[in-house]
Computed example of a mutant assay.
Amino acid sequence: MTLIGPQDENWDAMFIAAYPNAHAFLAMVSDPEYQRAVIHRQAAVRSSRLIRSTPLATRDGFA
């Protein structure tokens, strides 16, 4: 159920990946071996989103 966002977007799955920094992500996607493999991910999904975020400092309890 979408609480905030387009009501017509339904997602089957999602994941969160953490990288040490933006350079590490760019190095990964620039790697020739990754580029050969990514065609399979692209063929497997109709649509995807990539959202860059930064973790919040947490206190005791919920964020």
Rank of each mutant, 00 (worst) to 15 (best):
M1P: 04
M1I: 04
M1K: 05
M1V: 04
M1W: 01
M1H: 08
T2L: 02
L3N: 14
L3A: 11
L3D: 09
I4F: 02
I4A: 00
I4M: 03
G5K: 01
G5Y: 00
G5A: 00
G5F: 01
P6D: 13
Q7L: 09
Q7G: 10
Q7R: 13
Q7K: 14
E9M: 01
E9G: 01
N10D: 02
W11S: 01
W11R: 05
D12W: 00
D12T: 06
A13L: 06
M14Q: 02
M14T: 00
M14D: 00
F15Y: 10
F15S: 09
I16W: 04
I16K: 07
I16C: 05
I16G: 02
I16E: 12
A17Y: 09
A17H: 09
A17R: 04
A18W: 13
Y19W: 14
Y19K: 11
Y19R: 14
P20E: 15
P20R: 06
P20V: 06
N21G: 02
A22L: 14
H23N: 15
A24Y: 04
A24I: 12
A24P: 07
F25Q: 11
F25T: 03
L26T: 04
A27S: 10
A27V: 02
V29M: 02
S30T: 15
S30L: 09
S30M: 13
S30G: 15
D31I: 09
D31L: 06
D31G: 03
D31F: 06
D31E: 14
P32Y: 09
P32D: 11
P32R: 05
E33Q: 07
E33T: 07
E33H: 05
E33K: 06
Y34T: 08
Y34H: 15
Y34E: 06
Y34M: 04
Q35G: 05
R36H: 06
R36Y: 04
R36P: 03
A37D: 15
V38D: 05
V38A: 12
V38K: 08
V38Q: 06
V38W: 01
H40V: 13
H40L: 14
H40C: 05
H40W: 08
H40Q: 14
H40D: 11
R41P: 04
R41L: 12
R41M: 06
Q42G: 08
A43S: 15
A44Y: 03
A44T: 03
V45F: 12
V45T: 15
R46E: 14
R46A: 13
R46N: 09
R46Y: 10
S47M: 12
S47I: 07
S47P: 03
S48F: 11
S48I: 02
R49W: 09
R49M: 10
I51C: 00
I51Y: 01
R52A: 05
R52V: 04
R52H: 08
S53A: 11
T54M: 03
T54K: 10
T54S: 07
P55W: 07
P55Y: 05
L56R: 06
L56G: 01
A57Y: 10
T58G: 10
T58C: 13
T58S: 12
T58D: 04
R59M: 03
R59C: 01
R59G: 07
R59N: 02
D60W: 11
D60S: 10
D60Q: 07
D60E: 09
D60C: 03
G61M: 15
G61F: 11
G61L: 15
A63G: 11
